[in-house]
Lab assay of single mutants.
Amino acid sequence: MTEYKLVVVGAGGVGKSALTIQLIQNHFVDEYDPTIEDSYRKQVVIDGETCLLDILDTAGQEEYSAMRDQYMRTGEGFLCVFAINNTKSFEDIHHYREQIKRVKDSEDVPMVLVGNKCDLPSRTVDTKQAQDLARSYGIPFIETSAKTRQGVDDAFYTLVREIRKHKEKMSKDGKKKKKKSKTKCVIM
């Protein structure tokens, strides 16, 4: 069974824990209790493949930012979460993405942009803004509501699919490099 290491990042209060708990335990946590770091595991079937999701729910508070490099190193894919009623959390996505790329030393890291709290009427981040940002990053965008469960499975499952595509691409690139290195030079 394939294991996928997913990391949920975003500013404090955007609903990272609520999304994760909704996926794992099928219930909505409405009281806000700032996370330092929590880890969850769940076995699911995605596109006919049974897999184990190892999900790291991270601290959004700035005082825990020193811990970010460590979990970013171990993560295979990242859910970059903002709240649709919090423009600052949307603007912060850029910083999370840049930090992930720096730590992973790669421009090509599996990510999904997630606009959470889409059940709320007080939207300050337009869907088109988020779609445009995701398009500019070359990553999928999904709106979710941890409260109603809308888009929750889709967000995590899409990230797994992005990781699969990335692994497939990397193995193809690896095979191309191996083929090239088999060419021999004969000096007579």
Rank of each mutant, 00 (worst) to 15 (best):
V125K: 01
V125R: 01
D126E: 08
D126P: 04
D126Q: 06
D126L: 05
D126W: 04
D126F: 06
T127G: 10
T127P: 07
K128L: 09
K128P: 06
K128N: 12
K128V: 10
Q129V: 11
Q129T: 12
Q129W: 15
Q129P: 05
A130Q: 04
A130P: 04
A130C: 13
A130G: 07
A130L: 15
A130M: 15
Q131C: 09
Q131I: 07
Q131V: 08
Q131L: 08
D132L: 05
D132V: 04
D132I: 05
D132R: 04
D132F: 03
L133W: 09
L133T: 05
L133Q: 03
L133Y: 10
A134L: 03
A134P: 02
R135K: 11
R135N: 14
R135Q: 11
S136Y: 06
S136A: 10
S136I: 09
Y137M: 14
Y137F: 12
Y137N: 05
Y137E: 06
G138W: 00
G138F: 01
G138S: 02
G138L: 01
G138C: 01
G138E: 05
I139T: 04
I139G: 02
I139H: 04
I139S: 03
F141N: 03
I142V: 08
I142P: 00
E143C: 04
T144S: 08
T144M: 08
S145P: 00
S145C: 13
S145A: 06
S145N: 14
S145L: 03
S145V: 05
S145K: 10
A146G: 08
K147G: 15
K147E: 14
R149T: 15
R149G: 14
R149A: 09
R149M: 15
R149V: 09
Q150L: 10
Q150V: 06
Q150D: 12
G151M: 08
V152L: 14
V152M: 13
V152R: 06
V152A: 08
V152F: 14
V152H: 10
D153E: 13
D153G: 09
D153P: 07
D153Y: 12
D153A: 13
D154R: 06
D154N: 10
D154V: 05
D154Y: 06
D154W: 03
D154F: 05
A155F: 01
A155G: 05
A155M: 14
A155L: 11
A155P: 09
F156D: 00
F156N: 00
F156L: 10
F156K: 00
Y157D: 11
Y157C: 14
Y157L: 10
Y157E: 13
Y157N: 14
Y157W: 10
Y157T: 13
Y157A: 14
T158Y: 08
T158A: 10
T158G: 05
L159P: 00
L159K: 00
L159W: 00
V160N: 02
V160C: 04
V160S: 02
V160Y: 04
V160R: 02
V160H: 03
R161N: 09
R161G: 12
R161L: 01
E162L: 05
E162Y: 01
E162P: 00
E162W: 02
E162S: 08
E162K: 05
I163C: 02
I163G: 00
R164M: 10
R164E: 14
R164T: 14
R164I: 14
R164G: 10
R164N: 15
R164V: 11
R164H: 12
K165Q: 05
K165F: 02
K165R: 04
K165C: 02
K165L: 04
H166F: 12
H166G: 08
H166R: 08
H166L: 09
H166T: 09
H166W: 10
K167F: 01
K167T: 04
K167M: 02
E168L: 13
E168I: 10
E168Y: 09
E168K: 04
K169P: 07
K169G: 11
K169A: 12
M170R: 07
M170V: 15
M170Y: 13
M170D: 14
M170S: 12
S171M: 09
K172T: 09
K172C: 14
D173L: 08
D173Q: 06
D173M: 08
D173R: 05
G174A: 07
G174S: 13
G174F: 00
K175V: 05
K175L: 14
K175C: 09
K175F: 11
K175R: 07
K175I: 05
K176V: 02
K176F: 07
K176G: 12
K176A: 10
K177S: 11
K177F: 06
K177R: 07
K177H: 06
K177V: 11
K178I: 08
K178D: 14
K178M: 09
K180G: 12
K180F: 10
K180V: 10
S181V: 05
S181L: 04
K182V: 05
K182S: 09
T183A: 11
T183G: 12
T183M: 08
T183Q: 15
K184F: 00
K184S: 15
C185I: 02
C185G: 15
V186S: 15
V186T: 14
V186R: 03
I187S: 15
I187Y: 13
I187G: 15
I187D: 15
I187V: 14
M188Y: 13
M188P: 15
M188Q: 15
